[in-house]
Nucleic acid binder design. Structure first.
Lengths: 231, 231, 231, 231
DNA sequence: AATGAATGAGCCTTCATTCAT
DNA sequence: TATGAATGAAGGCTCATTCAT
């Protein structure tokens, strides 16, 4: 019941306000929604989305099966909500972290560390994000179009900024570099999830950033020359 | 690893002619297996693995539902077989391509181009590989442990080789770099699949390689210094 | 049979004024019960008994879901209460109307007109009576055994009376004729409900009565003769 | 398994043809469909449509639950199919019976007897027709629009014919008289179903026809005169 | 080898009803 | 008296798999 693994911006605010108004049943509604979402994360991670039953989620959350449907439209909605809540939190946290740093390299490093730290801190969440969320084009397309786009946008902006400061070369377009970086981090996370999760995922962040920053640091290379050497 | 029971792409073409020509038996069995696998790729891509029914696959392949089970153990086995067949082919093709090139950078470029070209040439296969194959930890773990490990091993060996030749810095370990590179390529493919697939996926390969090669090209950087500048 | 806890139709009108006027408590309870019953009639008519949710009824009545159960034992009880309330009212109204007329034909006509006028004046009620009330043998048997039996009894008595006065022939027994007449009126109502309800239902009454009265008016026919002409 | 209470026009034809072609599994498909439909009639009659479970129907038919869905789209479809099959049979039988008779009164009598005999011969079918089929406007509207309309049309044509022969008065329009007659028969059937079904339903037919034929037999009455005698 | 009719286990979701406030 | 959040039983339907032919 005390499991509240996510920081959750809006829910917390609401809960705090309500506590003043209705002292009884402290934070009841948001609280229960959170509990169900946390339970879903755990159950989905352990049984897989399709293997998990809504009844399992309910039991894990300590509510009746029907109660889940008071807070979520469907089983799919549970998965989507996990994604949205986590992305919203990640984006907010990311923005906040970037506000305190100006150096482009340091900023990328912050993003990478936060990215891997977040997943590394919650195995179940990591499994859901790296595996279960990729169920189908139905989900994937939806996710790519929303929070993920915004997340990639943040990375891209940092790179664009670095280019303007003359710190990063311009060639692979910022959008492309952002995707690559995300892809690299994503792969780190996936590998960690599928391994025994014994090593510290967050420590991969620096290696990734080192490589990318070096790659970006060199002056723009004469692309054609390099290209023509290949079939 | 040497299992290559199917001759690749031309399966469809052959299937079309077969009824007319009626070749001698020997080809028949593998041929039908191929047809089913091709049908499965298409159906899984369009309806999703869980959304697809074995009966759909059978219909698409022009056989009866029961016949599928003469060639595959289960529905899962269809997905696994698509993975294994494609990976076997990719690895073989990759090895062959590398044999003709020695320059580490050129070798990476070959790998990247082949990787994206293969997926870019077959939308359905790309969807299956980028989305449907990531169903569950059950599948993911299995895949990571087999063909994928070998594939990553090939990349890693190229990098190790580059290090030995003094062309690549040593710092992020070859294994890590291989994962990053794979992750970056993977992200390119996923983005392409989820976009309208209008642009040419293969052309992303050079951008990725440019960045990585540059990143790897610089002399090993004084890591500690960079690190300490961060919280 | 004497249970007539609610004053009929003007319920809605009263309900509308109530909030403004806030009459003394006594009316309150019956008033809310009425509102719920009126809401139920509407909701059942529009969504069907099984398609309707108790929550819909409550919302329509402007009360909370739980409140419905302060006035009714169950969802079934709502349907039963609609039936009982309407039948009680119809029987009372019918008796009163008959009191003013003595001619058997005119009495039948009064009954038929009242029957169809009542339903024709309230589409929702008509739908509930002609369709929703016939859910199951469970309901049907219950209804037949109660108000309906009394209603048929009234018709039968009018016919018996007409026979005693020598106005109606005796052959099809009064009970049978009463059923036939009820059946004919019932069919008129059902047809009207299932049509677009554009024509005036009440005007069917006279045609029905004309036919029945004529049929009843002839001297008793020599039944055997007619019968033997058939296989 | 030998229960085959319905005559079923097209199915039988198909079954006969097949028997020649595939002697094994005699009449398998139509047979199984029939068995399921017969089982559904029985189960719906005894438990009510909503109270019945598809699994019950399957068990009663001696097939697996899923098999029901090889022959019917849904539970609703079972009910609809019972209606359609019976109506088709009733209409065919009715048409055939009428072909042998020309006297309008005798024709009406044939219809009435067949109507009640059919229901009287199969309690379960009668319950389904008189009660379960009237579930909802959804069903009712559908039924009224199809077979029922045709059935009423047959009755109406007989009456129109009688008018042309000068045997029946013209006043209540044939359509209206047809509805009344149907309504009267329907009520007979419903009453019988809800009673203990101890008496012979078919014997009600003559009483109904006597009344209607007498009612129709008189010369057209001066309607206005009768009308004005009422309030 | 091929068929495709038959199987039956499995699960998401609804909603009448309750009860703590 | 009124509320409405919570309950949890119940069931229609799907579909991977089998097997008699």
């Amino acid at each position: 019941m005390n499991e509240q693994p996510f920081s959750e911006m809006p829910a917390t605010a609401r809960a705090l306000t309500r506590r003043l108004v209705r002292p009884s049943r402290p934070a009841a509604r948001g609280d229960k929604r959170d509990r169900i979402l946390a339970a879903a994360t755990q159950v989905f991670a352990r049984h897989g989305f399709f293997g998990a039953q809504v009844a399992d989620v309910a039991r894990q959350a300590g509510v009746a099966a029907g109660t889940v449907y008071l807070y979520f439209r469907s089983k799919d909605d549970l998965l989507i909500s996990i994604f949205e809540r986590t992305m919203a939190s990640a984006i907010a946290e990311g923005r906040q972290a970037l506000a305190a740093v100006t150096d482009p390299e340091a900023r990328l490093r912050r993003i990478a560390r936060l990215h891997l730290a977040r997943l590394g801190a919650d195995c179940d969440l990591a499994v859901v994000f790296q595996v279960e969320l990729r169920q189908t084009t139905k989900f994937m397309a939806r996710f790519s179009a929303t929070g993920l786009r915004e997340y990639l946008g943040i990375i891209r902006d940092v790179i664009t900024d670095g280019q303007k400061q003359g710190r990063f070369r311009r060639h692979p377009s910022p959008t492309l570099v952002a995707k690559m970086l995300f892809g690299a981090l994503d792969e780190m996370a996936t590998n960690w999830v599928l391994s025994d999760r014994k090593y510290d995922l967050a420590s991969d962040a620096d290696a990734v950033i080192d490589l990318f920053v070096t790659g970006l640091g060199a002056a723009d290379a004469p692309r054609k020359a390099r290209r023509t050497s290949l079939p």
